[in-house]
Write a protein that binds this DNA or RNA. Sequence first.
DNA 1: GTAAACTGTATCCATCGGACGCTGTGTAGG
DNA 2: CCTACACAGCGTCCGATGGATACAGTTTAC
Lengths: 252, 252
Amino acid sequence: MENVFGDHADVVELLWGLREPPSRGPKPTLSVERIARVAMGIADTDGLAAVSMQRVAGELDVTKMALYRYVSGKPELLAAMIELAAGDPPDLSGVPGGWRGKLEEFVRRLAIVWRQHPWLPWSTLGDRPMGPRELGWIESAISALAGTGLTGEEQLDAVFILFGLIRNTQSMSTAGTQPWDADKNVKPLMQELLHRYGDRFPALTAATTGTTCSSRDNGREFGVHRYLDGLEALINQRASDGTRPEAGRKPA
Amino acid sequence: MENVFGDHADVVELLWGLREPPSRGPKPTLSVERIARVAMGIADTDGLAAVSMQRVAGELDVTKMALYRYVSGKPELLAAMIELAAGDPPDLSGVPGGWRGKLEEFVRRLAIVWRQHPWLPWSTLGDRPMGPRELGWIESAISALAGTGLTGEEQLDAVFILFGLIRNTQSMSTAGTQPWDADKNVKPLMQELLHRYGDRFPALTAATTGTTCSSRDNGREFGVHRYLDGLEALINQRASDGTRPEAGRKPA
DNA sequence: GTAAACTGTATCCATCGGACGCTGTGTAGG
DNA sequence: CCTACACAGCGTCCGATGGATACAGTTTAC
């Protein structure tokens, strides 16, 4: 059995550097890294929807079919883009403040990368083969929770939820994955609607009146604070339950 | 100024029932509601990507251009689909357990709807005009937080974060918005990779060993529990700070 | 030196969303 | 009643998308 990676063999080989360079034939004028870099630039400026094979090829001064010599198709190109844009995972070992300080720093670092590449958090949804850089980010966050008394499964859940928190509070304005034109500001529109039909939404009307209703962080600070508070409560409970909680023990 | 709704005037008029029926001309054989229902069915079974004008028209036994008499384009069709699939917002007034019980019930209800329409949570991202049903869901959640001492902005943040939590723990298998084929199980692939390069990811390896590693809820229960714990801490703090100390639990 | 391997190109295809114009039909005003 | 207008549905065309295939040029291994 040669194909240990199943249907994603090509993507895995590409991401994990298992491609063997060709021995004969002309020198390649391109490289996967260069293609991915151009595609990443397009996605950064014009959104993920603007990344087409033709445009990427055009910016590289080749025909679009030339790209298929390096990537098997668009999914593989996207995988290369993700791995490139993720960048090197952060090293949180020197961050003070215990697990919470480390996670807060992790949130900051991740938010910076995701702000530079707004398409990135929405491309990493769903089950798919991950590359070493991307796995390194998860490793970085998990390692912050090592020794907290949480089980392995809880650590994975906690980190997964944290990723989702940042993802959902990311600005959607330049993601470019939605059919809506992000330029238009919809908030005055919704305010007009609330003003017309406010009697049908009393709680919402009450909540929106008196707020600045703009230029917020989509509740990221609020959400992360609340979530880490809850996580801290669990960790403290674990610490007070057993003097030495081991992984694998089933909690109540 | 006739157009008070800006560039989204057509969508808003459609969603909020401001369309005037024509007086003359042949009887329409279709309706926006019927079109949206068929499109919703396609998205439910084959994913959002399978919804094309041609296919929707084909299942209605008309040409695709006939649909443009009812919806101005695909964004408007999607808006109608969202509003239809959202369904009637839940009434949580009779749910016991205070704000937390109501929100937990809200999570349950929302998860049910989103499980029936896996494409729905990912279509509702970004700023866009919302319909009355969708706004009703937000109203329902906000009303659960009324009287908790949270400010309006905090209520909005809290609900927004809650939506995101459920969205991110939704199964992606049938969303149909991703280029990856969701059928393939990637987990054994990642386990193989972790087994090969485990030394580069020690914390991750430690966290995954010993866990069942499958058939989880993507951490939804964990995340919601942690988040609501944190929210409860804030609400209790507000209650003890404020002038009116209501019946609340002691903050941790 | 030759053949195999490899690169890039050109052509072709199906499908997508959408614009435009046409024909037929039904109601409203005279 | 009858005609004019407004609306429904259809056919045709367009540009862009991802992708398959066949072919010409180039470089290395034997």
